[in-house]
Amino acid sequence: MHDPLHQFEIHSLIPLKLEGVDISFTNSSLFMVLTVALITIFLVGGMSRGKLIPGRWQSLVEMMYGFVANLLDETAGFKGRAYFPFIFSLFMFILMGNLIGMIPYGFTFTSHIIVTFGLAMIAFCTATLVGFIRHGFRYLTLFVPQGAPFYMLPLIVPIEILSYLSRPISLSVRLFANMMAGHTMLKVFAGFTVILGVFGIAPLAVNTVLTAFELLVAVLQAYVFTILTCIYLHDAIHLH
């Protein structure tokens, strides 16, 4: 039986080294590049004709655009509009990365903790930078909740700081764990199907249901990641 974790293995395709650090082009990198290429084709191809009355493809692109714009407007408010390209990139990258991983023999780069952590750090650093650029050192008042009694501050402020710093961790672990668990489970049931022969029909049925469920998770996790980033941006823009 195949190791269910085999699918997460990374192997170098083009060995590269920069200042002694291994930055080889791996299968993970390949799928990231594919994701970027697919998103570009999807968006640019869909809007290439830019018709007044959109066709199916163009409608899909516009729906995506409208969906993310709406999400950002609702969570981060009007001032969040400036960060729309960033949020949209984040959403599309994670969504496409999750979906591309659903293709058999594909690779899911969002099932690697270091990738999701990198993405979470991008979101976290952007939000923090926005906060400091907009408010300067007043941004630190984010850690002092309004209306908290004075004597509680020594307790509350460290908790707030801790919760703020744990944001990228919770973001990355959530996405990573969801993607890895789902894909591992799919692989395990697929292994059962192979082993059981004729009776493999039962795990195959389960796998079919799980695949649909995984598609839902793929979209949902991209959505969750994006909406949380929007909320962090809201904090950075409005402080409270």
């Binding site: 170098s12 990198s29 990231m32 970027v36 570009t40 990738v115 993405l119």
Partner: peptide, 29 residues
Amino acid sequence: TTFPSQLFWLGVCFLTLYGILYYVALPKV
């Protein structure tokens, strides 16, 4: 040992995507 490579390519890909979306795709939409 795979972390530097993963982070490097993630950075490259995400920046490229952001650039493409910011300058080409989103203005079109």
